[in-house]
Write a protein that binds this DNA or RNA. Structure first.
Length: 199
DNA sequence: AAAACGATCTACT
DNA sequence: GTAGATCGTTTTG
């Protein structure tokens, strides 16, 4: 029972593709955070693809810096950065020096829900992890986990698959528009009818 | 060394 | 719906 998440960990090959292909496949997968003997787990219900080129609003546009260097590492690594007082987590896609990524935007609480409530100081279940900053707080994800390998069962954070893949008609797609210098290239994907999405 | 900049969240109207 | 909080990182002088 304790090892059920590790058993279904997703291998690197899953991520070695363009972000817009990986993003919808991540819906319905599980983000797992280990803390000692405890597991905090959420089902991914909303993501956003950031393409590896051509988007001035994306963090990868100007090339590597200290902040975003993990975007340029292997597919399946985590890119964790701070925005204002929050942390956000991306999954790196494609491969080395190709900085595409998928931002995880919302989770449906699945396991360790009491710990999530404590971390967030929020009781309402729909409100615990329905946003990219909120879910990092709920799972206690900080920048110390930047560049951790999400495909390794010994990592503190990894992604696994417990359910069958979603059908196309269970997924909605929307372009993100009207934000600062964005060029509308970020594709947001979410599970239709989920109560736990941020939009 | 100082200023500007957000891939956000909360609270309140 | 919108104002204000707030902070690591980058940019500028």
């Amino acid at each position: 029972m304790k090892k059920k998440y590790e058993k279904f960990i997703i291998p690197r090959g899953f991520y070695e593709s363009e972000p817009e292909n990986v993003a919808p496949k991540l819906l319905g997968k599980y983000l797992v955070k280990k803390e000692g003997n405890s597991y905090i787990v959420g089902k991914i219900v909303e993501v956003e693809a950031y393409l590896s080129s051509n988007d001035p609003a994306a963090h990868n546009f100007k090339g590597p810096t200290r902040r975003n260097k993990s975007l340029f590492s292997d597919a399946g690594k985590a890119y964790i950065h701070s925005l204002r007082q929050h942390c956000l987590i991306d999954v790196v896609t494609e491969g080395i020096n190709v900085p595409g990524s998928v931002l995880i935007r919302a989770l449906e609480p699945f396991d360790g829900i009491e710990l999530m409530k404590e971390n967030r100081r929020v009781e309402v279940i729909e409100n615990i992890s329905n946003g990219p900053g909120k879910l990092c707080k709920a799972l206690n994800i900080t920048r110390i986990y930047d560049n951790c390998d999400l495909t390794n069962k010994d990592s503190s954070i990894f992604i696994c698959s417990l359910d069958a893949d979603l059908e196309k008609d269970e997924i909605s797609i929307g372009n993100r528009i009207g934000i600062s210098k964005a060029t509308n290239l970020q594709l947001r994907f979410y599970i239709k009818n989920s109560k736990y999405i941020s939009t």
